[in-house]
Amino acid sequence: MLQDAAGAVSARAVAKVDEAAVIRAVQHGDQDAFEQLVRAYDQSVLRLAMNLLRSPEDARDVYQEAFLRVYRNIHTFRFDCSFHTWLYRIVTNICLDHLRKRKVRREESAVVETADGPVDRMDSFEHEGAHEDPERRMWNRQLADRISAALADLTARERMVFELRHYQGLRLRTIGDMLGTSEEAAKNCLFRATQKMRGVLGDLV
């Protein structure tokens, strides 16, 4: 057991060393290394953007803008925090901008009118555990709508903290660091977000 743990620690250390080498290569203009770096993180970035913004178009914009900012500014990365934190700072800033803009023009509906009637664009994206019987699926649909409504009710910052803690599994200290705030402030955000969610979803869960 102890050996396993030691093995895991050393594997992480090796991964860190390798990542540092890849980042240095990117800083020297190696585009293959940049591609390697992107592929190490882009799935989680896209998932974060998708869940936060609940719009494939916006998620795509965030992805593009975030990695282009990385590409343009990688020379300023000084290894004084993890690359993951640095990248997520960029991503969360862009997402927060999107969320705030959206609040100004009210929450966008994912439902669009088509010749066959209203269609929810998000239906084309798979929810985790989407393969159930029709009755279960209908109940889940109802729950998904309520979750969307509950998320829309959160402030941009509450939504971000909740997403990063619940879905991305990051510690509140790290989240505070990414968002340029204290761990205590992140805690308060998470608490408020959870209370609001429970207020909206209380009778369904």
Binding site: D42, M50, R60, F125, H127, I147, Y167, R198, L201
Partner: peptide, 20 residues
């Protein structure tokens, strides 16, 4: 609540990732 939220996590399709 946490379990319900987990079930409703959106998974971006591979095609979107490839396009990005």
């Amino acid at each position: 609540l946490a379990a319900a939220l987990d079930r409703n996590q959106l998974a971006p399709p591979p095609s979107l990732l490839a396009e990005c």
